[in-house]
Amino acid sequence: MIEATDVSVHIGAKRIVTGADFQAAPGEFVSIVGPNGSGKTTFLRALSGDLGYEGEIAIGGRDMKRMKPWQLASIRAVLPQAATLAFPFTVREVVKLGLTAGRSGVLPGEDERLPERALAKVDLEGFAGRLYQELSGGEQQRVQLARVLCQVWAPVLDGAPRYLILDEPVSSLDIKHQLVIMNIARDFARRGGGAIAILHDLNLAAMYSDRIYVMHRGRIAATGTPTDVLRDDLIARVFECDLRVNELPPSGVPYLLPQSVARTAG
C-alpha cells in the first residue's frame, strides 16, 4: 500500500499541492486525472520521493522520509512525464539501466535476457540495437517504460508488493500502443503489484481504473470508482467545459463526449 495522509507540497514559496489524502493498494490500478497545472506531476513526484513534503507518505507501511534511494528503488519504479538522455546509448543499454537497483525479481542470471523481454512487451522487438536518441517520441516513451518494467519485473518480491508510478504513460502514443501500455499496467496490478498513473484521457481512465483521483487546483477534488467520479457536474466544474457522461451499455463503463460534439451529432 502507498498511502499519503494530508500531504502538502511547496516549490519555493509557492504551495502547489494542499492536504492530499491518497491510497493505492496492491492489486489496484489507480489513476489521477485533472486539468493542466492542477498539481498531478508535483503530487506524483512527492509520492516518488523526489520532493520534500509536509504530511505523511508511507510505502509498504514504512515512512518514506526514512527510506534510502536504493530501498525505494526496490519497491517502486517511476516513469517521468519527460525524459532526456545525455549520451548516445543504444535502446538495449537504456532498458538495462532499469536493472541498476539489481532487484528485478527474476531468477539469478535471467537479468541478462530481461531487456529483450521488456522490449517485446512494449512492442519494440528488433529495436534493441538502435540508438535511443534516433527514435521517435512515442518509441522513446515505450523504451522508458521497458526500462521501468525491468526495475520491478516481478510485481511481488519477497512477499512485498511493488509499484509502477507512471506520469502520463500514454500521452504520446498511438491508439494501439495506448492500449498495449494500459494493459501492461493493469496486468501488473492483477498480478499483485500496484499501478498509479496520471492520465489525460478520461475514457481510458474509466476503462482501466479501479479507482480515480481527480485533482483540481492542488487539491483532491473527488475520489472513487469511475462511475462515482465521472459525473457531468463534477467533470464540467473541474475541467471547465461542457461534457456529457454516457454509459457503455454492455460493461457499464462511463464514457465522455464533449458536449458541443454530442449536440451536433444528435
Partner: peptide, 18 residues
C-alpha cells in the same frame, strides 16, 4: 554516472544516491 545520463530525478528513481 550511467544512471545520471537519464537526469538526476531518474537516477534517484533508479536507487542512486545522487
Amino acid at each position: 554516472l550511467n544512471g545520471l545520463s537519464l537526469g538526476e530525478t531518474t537516477a534517484h528513481h533508479l536507487g542512486i544516491p545522487v
